[in-house]
Simulated scan of single mutants.
Amino acid sequence: MMAIPSIHMSMFFLVLLFFVTSILSRAIENQTSELDKSSRIRAQLEKINKPPIKTINSPDGDIIDCVLFHDQPAFDLPELKDQNITLEPPEWPVGYNISEDTSAGDENIQLWSASGEECPNGTVPILRTTEQHLLRASNMIGRKDGVGSGHEYAIAYVTGEQYFGARTDINIWDPITNRDEFSLAQIWVLSGTYENKNLNSIEAGWQVNNIYLENKDPRLFGYWTRDAYQTTGCYNTLCPGFVQVNKRITLGAAIKPISSYNGKQFILNVMVWKDPKSENWWLSIGSGILIGYWPSSLFTGLKSHADMMQFGGEIENFSQQGHTTTKMGSGHFPEEGFKKAAYFKNLNFVNSLNQLFTIPVSKLQKYVNRPNCYDIRIFFSKYFGSHFYYGGPGKNPKCP
């Protein structure tokens, strides 16, 4: 074997030393970064998870903390922190009537409270957040840009006027989703634009997502942003924002019952509107059940009014091998119709006088970016009012 000259040997060891040092340096940097990230998450968890007065263990694995009303995350906001709020109920929109078939709209919609459990007076239920919840939520929020790659839609929308609220009935499904994706049905109340980075959005409905891998049932959720999803906003109570007021229903917890294909349909009546007295944006479900509100001070454009409302389904598609198999709605196309396809019915808006009106079908526009994967069909009938069927299976022979 030929000997390596000493000068070459020295060069060899210098290169080797540099290589090993670089690897160790990167490893230390990565370890430091992970420690910093872990420290930030622990600090955030301490802020979110307030000391409970009572803890309720739900049969579906959720942990519900009953915290004092003024201790909930929303009151960490500087503009709310020192306010001594006397909570007054909002003014219901004129013309709002309890729907006759909001079969999933009573206070037993969530399993944790279905047995009669509720939080004591003066407290509100907050779904306990774990480190894994935060990690998954941060990944999702970074992708929840409304128009970004990977997002696919089947929505109906109205624009061109000033809107002060939206209301609809959404039937509840539990679409199969891939691990890193979500499927939802919701209302969007919007002001501004994504392109100008001034988009204000309030969103509410049901969602199956990867924040809660332990339980893939649909969950009641809310979301907000005031800068096009860049640095503000979050799901539910994962950051200061939404003010919870209900003792038996909380954002983030799973909802039941669920509609069945060609069987019984269960409805979630959702309304988001601006209270003319407080100017806060309230969320109600079911038969006039108030869940809570987003303070007007959170927003810029929505401090005044909305200029667009959207209704419909959205999924994430991050499949690397063809289209995702994540389903939207029932997982069936709209042409299958009632009891088979998912639907929104009784599409309403609230005007500047706090009056509720049906959205005329003639003013509804639709947006579908992958019609062979998910689609929408808009109709009007005496019983369903302005309504639409939407959704689809995702990957199929026409959507490979």
Rank of each mutant, 00 (worst) to 15 (best):
A3V: 10
I4C: 06
I4D: 04
P5M: 04
P5V: 09
P5N: 12
I7P: 02
M9I: 04
S10E: 04
F12G: 00
F13N: 00
L14W: 09
L14K: 15
L16E: 01
L17G: 04
F18M: 05
F19G: 05
T21W: 14
S22K: 02
I23T: 00
I23H: 06
S25Y: 12
S25P: 00
I28N: 06
T32L: 09
T32A: 07
S33E: 13
E34L: 10
S38H: 03
R40G: 06
R40A: 07
R42D: 08
R42A: 13
A43V: 02
Q44G: 07
E46H: 10
E46T: 15
E46G: 07
K47Q: 13
I48C: 09
N49K: 09
K50R: 14
K50I: 09
P51G: 01
P51N: 02
I56F: 03
I56Y: 13
D60R: 12
D60I: 15
I63N: 09
I64N: 01
I64F: 07
D65K: 11
D65A: 12
D65W: 12
C66P: 04
C66S: 02
L68C: 04
D71T: 09
Q72S: 02
E79R: 08
L80C: 02
L80W: 08
D82T: 11
D82P: 05
D82E: 10
D82I: 01
Q83N: 05
N84L: 09
L87F: 15
E88V: 13
P90Q: 01
G95T: 01
G95N: 12
Y96W: 15
I98Y: 06
E100P: 08
E100M: 14
T102H: 13
S103I: 15
G105D: 00
G105N: 01
E107I: 10
E107P: 04
W112A: 00
S113I: 03
